[in-house]
Structure formats: structure tokens, C-alpha cells
Amino acid sequence: MTLLTVLLLAAAVILTRVSSLRTAVGILGFQSVIVALACLIFGLKTGEFHMYIAAVLTAVIKVGLIVYSLWKVTLQLKQEREIANFNVSFLLAILAIIVSYGFVNKVLPHMAGETLGAAIALTMIGLLMIIARSQAIMQVVGLITMENGLYLLGLSITKGLPLIIEMGIFFDILVAVVVLVILTHRLKYSFETTDTSILNELKG
């Protein structure tokens, strides 16, 4: 479990330094694999059957379908690269990890497992990506990272939500990615770029 947590955080931190869209999607896939594995381990630990189903769903939807659809879009966006200040977001990501572990140790010492801090950190890094990145695909990657963090958080404080709610959440995330991929396509088609910083016409 410790190994997984370390890998997960490392992946998230590296994600803040990536400028190529395809690498980012790859790392996202890796991240989701770890979440699926964590789910499996929780299942083995607690012996709850619905954890296994959740693990399979994570694998199919987050690792399979979402990464596949994002990958397909990035194939058409070969010239697109992220240009942001990587050093700042890198430092902020590390800060996020420190703060979340500090927070968990201080405020919720009785449940200071290793995953809870990682989950909060992952959520914060996802949010950071959405705010600090201007490439459409990067923002989507941030969104899924954030969702992965929330999912992990749910796993570590409760034993995961009931299966039907979890399935609903997975479905929503999948549809959200489909909608965002359609919009990204259209952005490329209308603006000839997927840099969302040009979306600044609507004001007042």
C-alpha cells in the first residue's frame, strides 16, 4: 500500500511538470491503474465483494474508456503543447502534499492512514491543474485527477460509497469526459487551437 501511495503521489507531481498532452494522458492512465489496484487491496483487506466490482469498474472506465478517448483526441492535437510555469505548479504540488499530510496528522490523528493524506493531496493537485493549465486536455486530466483523489478519499474514510451510487458517479465521469472531448474537438475546429486561454470574449 505504501508503495502504491508513493507511486501515486510521484505520478501526480510529475504530471505538473509535463508539457506534452500525450504524456499527461499516459500518466493519468497510470494513476488510474494505481487507484484500481488500491481498490483491489481494500477489497482483499475488508473482504467486501463490492470493492472488487468497483476495482473492475475503475479499470474499465477510468483506465480503459477515458484514457482511450483522451488518447484519440491527442492524436489529432500533435502541435498542441502546454506552456505554463511548471516550476510554480511543481512547488505548489509539493506544498499540497505537505499541507495535506500535515492537516491529516494534526486534525484527524485517529485516522491518519497513509492514503487519506494522499487522497487530499491528489484532489488539490487536480484542482491546481484545472486552474493553472490552459490546454483543454490538461484541464480534463486535472478533473480526472481530482476525481481520483475524491474517490480515494471516499475509500479511506468510509469503505467506499454503496455500489449503486458509485456506479452513478463512474457513469457521470465517463459522460463528462465524452462531453469535454466533443467540446475539445469543436474548439480545435473553430479556434484551430485547444488553448482555453483564448476563451475570454464573454464578459460583463
Binding site: 484541464q139 478533473l143 469535454l180 467540446l183 474548439l187 473553430s190 476563451l199 464573454l202
Partner: peptide
């Protein structure tokens, strides 16, 4: 309508 402002609005809305 998939024009520029509609895309901008939709992107911000979803995000």
C-alpha cells in the same frame, strides 16, 4: 450552435 461564444460558454459551464 457550436460557434465560438457558445463553445466558450459551454466549456466554462462544464468546468
Amino acid at each position: 450552435y457550436f460557434n465560438r461564444s457558445a463553445l466558450e460558454a459551454a466549456w466554462k459551464y462544464v468546468m
